[in-house]
Design a protein around this nucleic acid. Structure first.
Lengths: 157, 157
DNA sequence: AAATTATTGTAAGCATATTAACAGACCCAG
DNA sequence: CTGGGTCTGTTAATATGCTTACAATAATTT
């Protein structure tokens, strides 16, 4: 049997499994995902689906190509294929062939999606507002600045 | 064509796609996932794999049942089945039948895994220390307290 | 002891992500 | 105007998560 090292109190391998900022951040993120997931589910949506829809909503009637959508959502084209398929199955988007470029589809919201978003967006804004009301204006600013500091540090690792 | 509402500046649907604390939090989390993913990959690991291994490392020679591991990792038993299969394929864990309960396997680290963890854990500690050095001691405390405040708010939604 | 309830690990089906490889269509250079 | 490089969307394989359902085994209740 191999010998497990680093067993001292306070320096043990579990010291980053609790009281650590990254651990707390992870647990907040998990909770956030759960809470948002339920919130979106009440409207038949998911986080990625909402993300796609809001970008398409803002893009207007011309819609977006799958590539454009991928860039905005920061995911690969390969993901978009499946996501759009699922949204199509929900009758929330349609893929229109672009007459000027036979490679691309312009993805557009259906009327059903626009109606959904028109009612969901205010609900979503309230939801976010309610969550963020846990922090006052000053705390929010401090929080954002600390996050940005951490992110800058991350990017230089 | 449906009509898109809420297009006013400052109240438009994109105001929570930037400058918002949750948006910044999400983008930090994304970066964190990328950075950690590369870090783990250098040792042939992933975040979930490391997570399982560190819990097993701390559990000692008796190992953990898949259920116990799931509880510690906060994921369902169904996930553990696949994760353990993949770790078994990497020769990092073995599943020993428990003589006193025919339902369960006790999952244990192989010598290979213990050697790997003995060399990885210090590297990992340094890595986390380096990332967190973006914030000084006071900032870390403030950061954690804000995260916890936010989480408490989240749990009451 | 027998019947009911609970727990364990697995499996199937889905959603979301990744990467790598591909065919088709475009564009620019010569 | 033809070739070579580039871009687009798709596909396949994999990793990770979820839920639901199931069979085997344990534990508890009666």
């Amino acid at each position: 049997m191999g010998v497990r090292k680093i067993q001292e109190k306070g320096a043990g391998p579990d010291h980053y499994l609790s009281k650590n900022a990254l651990f707390v951040l992870g647990s907040v993120w998990d909770t956030l995902e759960d809470v948002f997931s339920m919130h979106f589910a009440r409207y038949g949506l998911s986080w990625p689906k909402f993300n796609a829809l809001i970008h398409l909503y803002m893009a207007g009637d011309r819609g977006l190509t799958q590539s454009e959508l991928g860039k905005k959502m920061l995911v690969s084209r390969a993901n978009i294929t499946g996501l759009i398929e699922r949204l199509e199955k929900d009758s929330l988007v349609i893929r229109n062939a672009d007459p000027s470029d036979k490679r691309v589809f312009r993805v557009c919201l259906t009327d059903r999606a626009i109606i959904l978003m028109n009612s969901f967006i205010p609900v979503h804004n309230n939801f976010i507002h309610k969550i963020m009301s846990a922090l006052d204006r000053n705390e929010k600013e401090v929080f954002i600045s600390l996050l940005e500091k951490l992110k800058k540090g991350l990017e230089s690792v």
